[in-house]
Amino acid sequence: MDGEELTAQQTALYDRQIRVWGVDAQKRLSKANVLVSGLNGTLAEFCKNVVLAGVGSLTLMDDRLVSDDDLRSNFLIPPDEAKKSGGSLAEVYCNSLKEFNPMVHVSVEKGNLTQFHGDLFDKFDAVVVSCCTLKEKRMINEKCRERDRRIAFYTVECRDSCGEIFVDLQNYTYAQKKSDDNVKYHLEYPSFQEAISVPWRDLPRKTTKTYFAMRVLEHFEYFHNRKYGETSASDLPIVLNLRKTLCDEQGVNESLIPEKLLDHLLSAGAKEHPPVCAILGGILGQEVIKAISGKGDPLKNFFYFDAADGKGIIEDISPVSKH
């Protein structure tokens, strides 16, 4: 790759990972700008990973003040200082993350990402959101897609022991070494809306149940004007009705989505299980690094982890035209 060489300092710091993904990938990383919004324990893990990896810049958005809930599964918030300072979540994260790697520019952007003008997206290579409602996910995803340059879009959710990652790389081409030859691969990703519009009947029978359960929850929060994760076990009766309605619409049997799983997700609300945060933040970090560096097969387009069975599963949920 063209461009300046890595400095001696970079080479020394990144030695072990350059051995994994090469100098060119490291150079691309050091020029990439990543935006995260909706900060929680999972995104704390993600931020740590991309800052350590040496992205060019990381921009944090979340104006909420630090609450006790935020402290629970978070290593970026020193409990006493954070409350005293009265800073926003983004500011507290920023102060901690800066120390992890002096070569990465970590900063705060105020406001709400859904209100962002399109051109503000242009400076980013990847946008990662969590704690978003269905409506927000759609909006931000569409704004990324409207731009001329490709902006990778990711969502991540951790509801206790269950997690979901969604990836939209739009039209993504990458090279992969195959027995000394560089083979070019091309992937076409659906948007979030396109993906969740795929009729359930058309999906393989073995598609993870968590996918469907997450969609039910998303719709529940949407129809009842709840914030992300604003749920409890007492919502179960309404959610079971919604399950029936959705399954009827889709022409599938409602046993597709176990009641136990819905109950579990509703009780969890926005509460995260720290080991699962680490796993989701690790996988998501790696995916963003892959997309930026153009190294490695990116996952398409959903990832699921459930501590109950320990499986980390990839599901490709795309309309037929984008398979």
Partner: peptide, 14 residues
């Protein structure tokens, strides 16, 4: 020298 990245270690620790 063993190749090492933070993300794998984080996943394994979880």
């Amino acid at each position: 020298i063993v190749h090492a990245v933070a993300t794998t270690n984080a996943v394994i620790a979880g």
